[in-house]
């Protein structure tokens, strides 16, 4: 850019502004704080290799099952994303809507896609096979930091409903 001119010629030189970062220390301190804050996940995990959880299927009940029966009430991929919804639907069905009218039949039955009937119960159906809560349930729940309140009632070591009857 040229110097400032009017019709009489140059009347002012272009102001000589220093080429530097003003308040250098403050600006750099601010930027460092910003950088450290936004890269916290990097520092937290520095040099770590975090293994993905591997839910364990090795329980006595599952081992006893015939090979063709070794399957869940719904496909595995679907269960990975939606099992909480299934359990809540079961709960609502059994505890909050149906069971008040019918004690034994429809409200407690879950018909799987292959027409097989299951008792809609976390303790008696799910945890019958998956009796290893720590290796099966907790591993993924801890990994993604969710704390489901299922275990407030469904004590893992508690007596099973069927046995009580």
């Amino acid at each position: 850019m040229a110097d400032y001119k009017n019709e009489f010629g140059v009347f002012a030189e272009r102001p000589k502004v220093e080429k530097k970062i003003f308040d250098r220390n403050k600006v750099i301190a601010g930027l460092v704080i910003f950088l450290v804050m936004v890269t916290i996940p990097l520092w937290q995990n520095l040099g770590k290799t975090v293994a993905a959880p591997t839910p364990n299927l090795d329980t006595p009940v599952i081992q006893k099952l015939a090979e063709k029966d070794k399957k869940c009430v719904m496909p595995k991929e679907w269960m990975r994303a939606n099992h909480m919804q299934l359990l809540v639907d079961w709960r609502d069905n059994v505890v909050r809507t149906k069971e008040q009218q019918v004690t034994t039949s429809r409200g407690r039955n879950f018909v799987a896609s292959d027409k097989k009937q299951y008792l809609a119960s976390l303790t008696n159906t799910c945890m019958e096979c998956h009796s290893n809560k720590a290796q099966f349930c907790d591993q993924c729940h801890n990994y993604v930091a969710v704390a489901p309140n299922c275990w407030g009632c469904h004590l893992e070591t508690g007596k099973k409903l069927a046995e009580a009857k």
Binding site: L42, A52, E77, A81, M84
Partner: peptide, 27 residues
């Protein structure tokens, strides 16, 4: 429309540990 959040975390952790890994099960 739930997705498998274990797979989400595998992806995210892979990114921040600089060992990116692509889980198959993401919507």
């Amino acid at each position: 429309f739930k997705t498998d959040i274990v797979a989400v975390k595998e992806l995210a952790i892979g990114l921040v540990t600089l060992h990116p890994k692509l889980p198959a099960n993401l919507s």
